[in-house]
Amino acid sequence: MEFGLDKPLVDIQNLTFRRGDRVIYDDMSMQFQRGKVTAIMGPSGIGKTTLLRLIGGQLKPDSGKILFEGADIPTLTRQELYQARKKMSMLFQSGALFTEMSVFDNVAFPIREHTRLPEAIIRTMVLMKLEAVGLRGARDLMPAELSGGMARRAALARAIALDPQLIMYDEPFAGQDPISMGVIVRLIRSLNDALGLTSIVVSHDVAEVMSIADYVYVVAERRVIGHGTPEQLRQHESPLVQQFLQGQADGPVPFHFKAAEYATELMELSR
């Protein structure tokens, strides 16, 4: 199918997803434009990772469409889904490197699985990917010997090994020291531009996201509460968006978990 380059690479339409009785997303729509870094921000526990798994076809929505290059992911057959997945890749929060393989073999894994290239070419490809993330020297280390930031970069090299069109980052900044955070921020942007990728970044680190994203969706309470370029978002009138962007402890999202009246509860104890 010929597909216009001006259309979004991933197009989510009226997505509803439930887990048991709990509604995670209610009639939500989003577009991810080609060649852009699009971020999804929101408080923890609203299922941002779930969204990436929905795009990757690991979960099925209750209703709505998830179009990837015009094909509706939930309706694909297994074979078509696996073909589509070769064009996308995901960087997991933990890195998810295979612990029994060296860094080199980890990066070579998808190439060896999906191509029949000779070992010499694989070596060249792997070294290029590792060079791009600055870990060429660490190729013989095992994942257990890497620091958290290095593990994530190694996983990033593995994620771009087959030159995907779409790369999804799950909380890439969580638990990183300032230096490796800076490295990853730079890598996301430079890889996106150099390789012509489309990137989706899921995160709650406001400052980092606002510095690299071309477009931002803020998700809370099962839906998109605000979206726009970082500039537009800073001017956004919704108090919920403002509370999130500025990290205020109390506001439309209350500091206190739902509970009975404080004084009554204290009195009950002493009774």
Partner: peptide
């Protein structure tokens, strides 16, 4: 638990087979 199976799936490698 360490998402190795999930990441394999996302690399279009079936963890059941592999």
């Amino acid at each position: 638990a360490t998402e190795q199976l999930s990441s394999m799936e996302m690399m279009a490698v079936d963890p059941l087979r592999r």
